[in-house]
Nucleic acid binder design. Structure first.
Lengths: 154, 154
DNA sequence: AACCGGTGATTCAAATTCGAACAACCCGTG
DNA sequence: CACGGGTTGTTCGAATTTGAATCACCGGTT
């Protein structure tokens, strides 16, 4: 691996743009959610996933997959959110080891409270900045990137 | 803000694709760098910036700007890297408060050792997955996203 | 029924992160 | 020259993340 194919200028622009945008957008969203609703970004993601799930509940492992956090990180966050009353744990009837995270009414309310500001920020920092063509390129290109990494990682 | 403009399907695909790719790519790079060279991603970034800087040195504040870390995070990382012999601190002659981080020969060697594997991974997970058109869309679109966030944040 | 590889979730210690507070200093102004 | 606002880098404590180790359990096999 002494002579790798370095990145040409086009590739470099795309790569550093992606890297910078990734860091900056994440930081901005974290800050906005914390200021606006007292939620961290991982916590918001958990609320969203639970709200979209059938019965408003998901197994811990399902929640950890495809999420930013590791398994232990999820355990921590769910514990915090349980203290805050946003979610509740329910043990799985068919598998004693299994644990469901269940969205509470308070959690649902918190999500509805936080969502508008969150969406507005997403528009402001990303969606409304891009042209429709760029949106499609992002969706197609980064969609494939994500798919490959999920495939490998699993 | 009771009736925000929600994301339509195209926007949603782009947004969640970006979010997922962002998290997955970062995680993968962190892991690769740590396994391959014993560096964290922030540390690698520091090496790259210093290597590109005139005299192989930069002020702490310059290094902190546009980097993933906060000021205090940078102090921490530079301290770690100084222990590892990759960088060295030098006080600024014209400003007693100022501190330069200087790349050492060992740091330079570490960067040359780590770079090929890093570039290969960047190609594998992102650059080689995208079409040239998608690369340009990323560079243009996300470049603008980064520019705006830098402008606001500063 | 006892065994066994694999799974689900938690616990633990260590590393890393951030923001706020801090101390020291620069510089332009009066 | 003394003053005051803004900078520079570090320190501090609290929160968060990770991976490894752990415990308990499932399901199929012997």
């Amino acid at each position: 691996m002494a002579e790798p194919r370095w990145l040409d200028e086009r590739e470099m622009r795309a790569w550093s743009g992606f890297l910078a945008a990734s860091a900056l957008v994440n930081r901005r969203l974290d800050q906005q959610l914390k200021d606006d609703a007292g939620l961290s970004h991982p916590q918001y993601e958990i609320l969203v996933r639970l709200a979209a799930a059938p019965g408003r509940e998901l197994r811990m492992t399902e929640l950890a997959n495809g999420l930013i956090n590791s398994k232990s990180g999820l355990t921590y966050q769910v514990t915090q959110m349980e203290k805050a009353g946003l979610v509740r744990r329910r043990s799985c009837p068919s598998d004693v080891r299994g644990v469901f995270a269940v969205l509470t009414d308070a959690g649902s309310a918190k999500l509805e409270e936080a969502a508008p500001g969150h969406v507005a920020t997403v528009r402001e920092v990303l969606v409304d900045v891009l042209t429709p063509a760029q949106l499609d390129a992002l969706a197609d290109g980064l969609g494939e990137v994500g798919r490959r990494l999920r495939g490998q990682g699993a």
